[in-house]
Design a binder for these strands. Structure first.
Length: 291
DNA sequence: CGTATGCCCTGCGCGC
DNA sequence: TGCGCGCAGGGCATAC
């Protein structure tokens, strides 16, 4: 599941290959993945267009083009964007929904088993920009993001801190993996109301978010079964996960078994020793959701 | 406005 | 062994 570190890794791995390349043809095998404009116009408008740069905002990949336009991609759960230098020698994987042919004979292939991801092609007027990108919160790894920013984002929110951190309009780029990891590192229970965090806890959480994301980017993200970067390589952060997908294994800090609960509609991993429950009385309700 | 819920989609793991 | 069911989950529309 590509989150900020995985999308950043895809960006870095694609940039040297795509920069300056011209799109010669676009194949769309599954029109539903083209979100804007209509698939016919999408493919027509991209022919003869050059790639100038690749940026990232949250989990969105922004491919800047010339003449001026931006190809905006989102990988969602299972999307993969892979550069293939010699397409004739590499069979297309199943669920390859979009193929961008380049002027050097290479292909940029978009593969997505669950087909949640997709593309927007947006001109200089910005029409067709995904609503989630318009309302996206601050970049957690930018210099602008400070503990005061985090405190402001959480202000007045009664929703669980986990749900707040997953809300892309509050902070950009965090998903299920890195939220669980950051909350564990900050020793904060995921169910704590967002606005109830003390100033010291906000600072701890801020540091944890920055550190977890920075390390994950350095290790080229986390791979389970789906995620690979633009060259088909797997991420190295899996071995550094402390709680995520480690239900029943000992907490690296205290040795207590990692628990798994359901929260904000997401599976949530935590250590009840290191992350004290805000409502210990809700024990009976919790047991129903624990796995 | 803030918060909660359901849907999109496919592969996989579980239970019988 | 084989089948069917339910879960997994990011973002967005919709409802309250």
């Amino acid at each position: 599941m590509p989150e900020l570190p995985e999308v950043e890794t895809v960006r870095l791995s694609l940039l040297p290959h795509l920069s300056g390349r011209v799109i010669s043809r676009v194949e769309v095998g599954r029109p539903g993945q083209i979100r804007h404009p209509e698939p016919e116009r999408f493919t027509a408008d991209l022919v003869g267009v050059a790639v100038v740069d690749i940026r990232r905002r949250g989990k969105y990949l922004l491919i800047d083009l010339a003449p001026p336009a931006t190809l905006i991609g989102h990988l969602r759960m299972s999307g993969q964007l892979v550069y293939v230098a010699a397409p004739a020698t590499v069979p297309r994987p199943p669920h390859t929904h979009v193929v961008f042919h380049l002027d050097n004979g290479a292909e940029l292939r978009y593969t997505d088993t669950r087909a949640f991801g997709g593309f927007h092609l947006v001109g200089p007027d910005g029409r067709g920009t995904p609503t989630g990108l318009v309302s996206l919160g601050p970049e957690p790894l930018s210099g602008d993001f400070t503990p005061a920013c985090l405190k402001e984002a959480l202000r007045g929110r009664r929703t669980p801190i986990k749900a707040a951190l997953l809300d892309q309009s509050l902070i950009a780029g965090l998903g299920n993996i890195y939220v669980d990891e950051a909350l564990w590192q900050a020793r904060i229970h995921p169910r704590r109301p967002a606005a109830s965090l003390s100033p010291a806890e906000v600072v701890r959480l801020y540091g944890a978010i920055r550190q977890v994301l920075t390390r994950a980017v350095a290790l080229r993200g986390t791979s389970f079964s789906q995620y690979i970067d633009g060259q088909g390589r797997r991420g190295g952060f899996v071995e550094h996960l402390q709680v995520f997908r480690r239900t029943g294994l000992p907490c690296p800090a205290c040795g207590r078994a990692i628990e798994r609960i359901k929260l904000a509609g997401r599976s949530t991993h935590l250590c009840s020793g290191c992350q004290p429950d805000p409502q210990p009385g809700a024990e009976a309700d919790l047991s129903k959701t624990e796995v």
